[in-house]
Simulated assay, not measured.
Amino acid sequence: MYDYIKGVIEYVGPEYIVVDNGGIGYQVMTPNPFIFSAKISEQVQIFLYHHVREDIFALYGFETREEKALFTKLLNVTGIGPKGALAILASGQVDQVVKAIESEDETFLVKFPGVGKKTARQMILDLKGKLENIVPDYFPNLFNDGKSSARTDELDEAAQALKALGYSDKEVQKVAKVLQQEELTTEQYIKKALQLMLK
């Protein structure tokens, strides 16, 4: 699997760009190729997604890892293929798309080309709660309600550990207020949370 390519932009077209790397021109499909127009003959770094099917062997490229990550997530949604995912990324910013999915804003999602009500609903069903690693700043801290705490890092680590154990955000939030009242180590927070959850 390719992660990225560094090379010189040789061509910008309506659907793809060509990146020259070591004398080989790589055709890379991007959400909006024309944003690279000002970078022709310049060296760039493009994050790649390598799409392989029986009849397709294609490279999809993105300016940021966040774009690439959201593209990959969108491909897991029933009814959305590479072209549909590219159209969504071309029409909206990553944080806008994530915010719309998390807030179940179907009205916003159906504005994207090829996205009807059914697909918008599927996007929400498949992706809500699974995009935290793409735009972490958008998501409220599970254990920190905005108040400063000397134990914020330990609380964060405890929250991640509880989620790794299979507890949902909702379940973690239920015990969050109690845990915020105490200053403990990560391990102690986890033990305390488990005790509260098992009551």
Rank of each mutant, 00 (worst) to 15 (best):
A38R: 15
V97I: 14
D137H: 12
K128F: 04
E42C: 08
Q195S: 11
S168R: 09
M29S: 15
E66M: 06
K117H: 08
Q160W: 12
T119G: 03
F57T: 09
P31H: 05
Y4A: 09
F71M: 07
A159G: 14
K118R: 13
K6A: 07
E171G: 15
K118V: 08
E66H: 02
M197G: 12
Y49P: 00
G146D: 04
I134C: 00
E15L: 11
G146H: 02
I124V: 13
K147S: 10
G79T: 03
T185N: 05
P136R: 05
V115E: 01
K39W: 03
G146L: 01
P82Y: 07
Y26Q: 04
N141M: 02
Y49C: 04
S148V: 00
Q45S: 15
L131E: 01
T152W: 00
K118D: 03
K177R: 08
Y49G: 06
E63W: 10
I17A: 06
L196I: 09
I5V: 12
D95S: 14
D145L: 13
K191D: 07
Q160K: 14
V178N: 13
Q181S: 14
L131W: 02
L196Q: 12
F71V: 07
L74N: 07
L155Q: 08
F71S: 07
F36S: 04
G23A: 08
S149N: 06
E183F: 12
V52N: 06
I9M: 02
L162E: 04
V178Q: 13
Q43H: 11
D3G: 03
T152P: 00
N133W: 00
A90T: 04
D169F: 00
T186H: 01
D145C: 02
V135K: 03
K163E: 12
Q180H: 03
L74V: 04
Q93R: 13
T185S: 15
V8Q: 14
Q180G: 10
A90I: 08
H51K: 00
D153Y: 00
Y11T: 09
Q93M: 12
Q188L: 11
D169K: 12
A158I: 03
N141I: 00
M123E: 06
K192W: 02
E182F: 13
N76H: 15
G84V: 11
V98Y: 01
K6F: 01
L48T: 09
A164F: 00
I80R: 08
A58P: 11
I40S: 04
L59Q: 05
T107F: 08
Q188A: 14
V52W: 12
L184H: 10
G7D: 04
N144L: 13
L179P: 01
P82A: 11
D95F: 13
L165T: 11
V172N: 02
P82V: 06
A38G: 11
T64L: 15
Y26I: 07
H50V: 14
I56E: 15
I46A: 14
P140Q: 12
T30P: 02
L162S: 03
Q96C: 10
I124R: 02
K39V: 08
K111F: 03
M1L: 11
Q93K: 15
Q160P: 01
Y167A: 05
V18F: 09
R53S: 14
E10P: 00
R151N: 09
R65C: 01
A158H: 00
E154M: 11
R121V: 00
T72S: 09
A120R: 01
P140K: 12
K191V: 06
K128S: 07
N133E: 12
K117N: 09
K170R: 13
A90D: 09
F71R: 02
D3E: 15
A164Q: 10
